[in-house]
Design a protein around this nucleic acid. Structure first.
Length: 666
DNA sequence: AGGTGAGCATTTTTT
DNA sequence: ATGCTCACCT
């Protein structure tokens, strides 16, 4: 047990970390040292003779997987630590699929459709499938299909409903394009393991101990997958999670997976981590009072050794602008009076739209901030274009990618031609590129269109051959392809300002650099596309950027900040109007709970009397949740009262800072 | 083939 | 308010 200090753990943590095996459930409240226990458990297992390569830890995010690996690396010898598998559900599935997907009739060079590709495909299918008097919202269809997949429903044979018909056709076309969507990663992995004992046994025998993090967020398929990975009657499965932090029900997460864990894995040992190492008791009290209003929960009460700390403050501001001003002022004053760093502050909100006003106030006061969750880079048109070029070159069946690049740059192939080609390909049951270049289709075209198509097809085929040559420098090659086909020129031309052109060019450059980087590290480049779809590449540059954090409540889960401002605690926003309609107010309460428990030292919650929604001013009621957190260590004050507070020493500094900030204004 | 303007909807988003 | 889609125009 060299190098492992058990005295870091409290008794319950220690009990969990050193439990010999069998099913176990670790209920880990917010800030109770969950990762530490997982790390300790892995270390303990290895110290007690379990092969490091026999341990599989599954997480939801790449960040969590990376952190886990790092922390295990800090506890175990390097060679052993490397052998532990810590991976996300989706990257595990990708490994399963890349190995055996041919058994399901896909080729192993399949591409992964992102949300945009999915919506695009669904839209086209609806257009082609719906009768004149029918209509279906593509977003709703996508959600419906996703739900169906996650419930384990296969497309219906008889196309009774439009949605059913669209689902069936969507799935058929995906396969034809040799593409899978995010849900397929799970459905297909589960199907592979369920239908092919050889595949199942391969993965079963690979691991002796399974750890699943954030178990409250698993959906049906993820539970199925985990179950399939278990071989014994009393499997060594250790799940960690917190039912009170289940906030992804709308995405298919089944809170029952954790609430009814005993049903899925009988006779587990249950551990409850309730000692919190993060927040003051004032904050924990508020959180406990709130969450006990939820009926369906396993029941937990967070407590802390540390002193009570400052009271939680609830502010009522007149309107959303005042609220933003208040938060910016308060952060500024607090930072200067207590000599804090901007990084110590975070502003949490329900909807991304709420960040706007806060941002502009922070900008006005010259306070640096970082906005979390903006998926800007990979959503840029030019970045998607280049990725589509890569995807199409790797997988010529990828119709979505082809459609994207077919018109950028313009190649003299018009909308009518493309529509006809799509129709033709559907009838001929062939891929778009094959359909378009087939002689049967060519005959219907003008010679100009025919030549344009042929040129495109030849160009791409040449590029493909060059790219697939072993040892090819992918980044350089793609760069020259983009230049040769006129893409770069067209990109520049389509920009309104020189700055825009420069920024788009830089983005392309950055992507190509990332590709080159990947190739040097991995000696191949095909995996680059997987990484991009799995977000791994995206996250790399997320860490940088200093300043006050602006983040949604959802995205804030798992993070912590010394000083938290939770804005917009109003009825209709938190709980969100839609959740009241859908009867998921409990989940909103958990969301609020997650927000509260992010704070280490101070928590300030605000709500407005008026808020501008969709362009017009509306009256706002305070969130019902605010009544629930009431107690001696929660102060309710109006914004006006704060402004009229007697000037004490601390406040004097506040005023000074405020005055200085005002002088800084332009 | 691409640009423009009216009309429309508007949560959260680990992969 | 704002961004996005679709239809219509040049």
């Amino acid at each position: 047990m060299a190098g492992f200090r058990f005295f870091d753990l409290n008794p319950e943590q220690l009990r969990a970390a050193t439990h010999p095996g069998g099913p176990m459930l670790i209920l880990a409240g917010a800030g109770t040292g969950k990762t530490r226990v997982i790390t300790a458990r892995v270390t303990w297992l290895i110290a007690n003779g379990v092969g490091a390569d026999k341990i599989l830890a599954v997480t939801f995010t790449n960040k969590a997987a990376r952190e886990l690996k790092e922390r295990i690396g800090g506890m175990v010898e390097a060679e052993k630590a490397k052998l532990v598998t810590a991976s996300t559900f989706h990257s595990l599935c990708l490994k399963i699929l890349r190995r055996d997907i041919e058994r399901l009739g896909y080729k192993p060079n399949f591409t992964i459709y992102d949300e945009g590709d999915q919506t695009g495909l669904i839209k086209k299918i609806i257009n082609r499938t719906a009768a004149k008097d029918e209509s279906l919202d593509p977003g709703a269809a996508k959600a419906g299909i996703s739900k169906a997949k996650n419930m384990g429903w296969t497309p219906p044979e008889d196309d009774k409903t439009l949605l059913g018909a669209v689902y069936a056709r969507y799935q058929r076309e995906l396969k034809q394009f040799n593409a899978i969507d995010f849900d397929d990663m799970l459905t297909l992995s589960v199907r592979l393991m369920a239908d092919f004992p050889a595949v199942r046994d391969y993965w079963r025998e690979k691991y002796d101990h399974l750890l699943v993090d954030e178990f409250q967020d698993t959906n049906k398929l993820q539970l199925d997958l985990v179950t399939l990975l278990c071989r014994e009657k009393r499997p060594n499965i250790c799940v960690v999670g917190d039912d009170d932090q289940s906030i992804y029900g709308w995405r298919g997460a089944e809170i029952s997976n954790i609430l009814e864990f005993e049903r899925h894995f009988p006779g587990p040992e249950v551990f409850k981590l309730e000692q919190n190492y993060r927040s003051t008791n004032a904050i924990l009290d508020a959180a406990n009072r709130l969450i006990k209003n939820n009926a369906r929960r396993r029941g937990k009460k967070l407590w802390s050794d540390s002193p009570g700390g400052a009271n939680v403050t609830v502010i009522s501001a007149n309107d959303d602008l005042t609220e933003a001003e208040f938060v910016a002022n308060e952060i500024n004053a607090h930072k200067h009076s207590d000599r804090l760093e901007w990084e110590h502050f975070a502003v949490l909100y329900r909807m991304n739209a709420q960040s706007r006003l806060i941002e502009s106030e922070l900008r006005r006061m010259k306070i640096p901030y970082r906005l979390v969750g903006g998926r800007s880079f990979f959503d840029r048109r030019e970045v998607k274009d280049v990725i589509s070029y890569l995807n199409f070159l790797v997988n010529p069946k990828d119709d979505a990618a082809m459609l994207r690049i077919l018109t950028s740059p313009p190649r003299g192939i018009g909308g009518v031609t493309i529509e006809n080609a799509i129709e033709f390909s559907a009838k001929a049951d062939a891929n778009l590129i094959d359909a378009m270049t087939s002689s049967a289709f060519s005959e219907t075209l003008s010679s100009r269109a025919r030549n344009a198509i042929q040129t495109f097809a030849d160009e791409m085929q040449t590029a493909r051959i060059r790219l697939m040559t072993p040892g090819a420098n992918a980044s350089e090659l793609v760069g020259s392809i983009l230049a040769d086909c006129g893409y770069l020129e067209d990109l520049k031309r389509s920009c309104k300002t020189p700055e825009e052109a420069l920024s788009r060019e830089t983005n392309v450059r950055e992507l190509l650099d990332a590709l080159a980087d990947y190739q040097t590290k991995h000696k191949n480049w095909q995996g680059f596309l997987d990484d991009i779809q799995l977000d791994r590449e995206r996250e790399k540059d997320k860490e940088d950027g200093r300043g006050v954090t602006l983040i949604t409540l959802h995205a804030a889960k798992g993070l912590e900040y010394p000083h938290v401002y939770l804005v917009g605690a109003e009825d209709g926003l938190l709980p969100h109007e839609r959740s009241k309609l859908e009867g998921t107010v409990d989940e909103e309460r958990r969301l609020f709970y997650v927000g509260i428990t992010r704070a280490r030292q101070t928590l300030t919650i605000s709500h407005c009397l008026y808020r501008t929604k969709f362009g017009s001013k509306t009256t706002c009621k305070m969130s019902g949740f605010l009544q629930e957190i009431q107690g001696d260590n929660v102060d309710f004050v109006s914004h006006a009262e704060i402004m009229a507070r007697p000037v004490e020493e601390e406040e004097a500094l506040d005023l000074f800072a405020r005055a200085r900030a005002m002088l800084n204004e332009p």
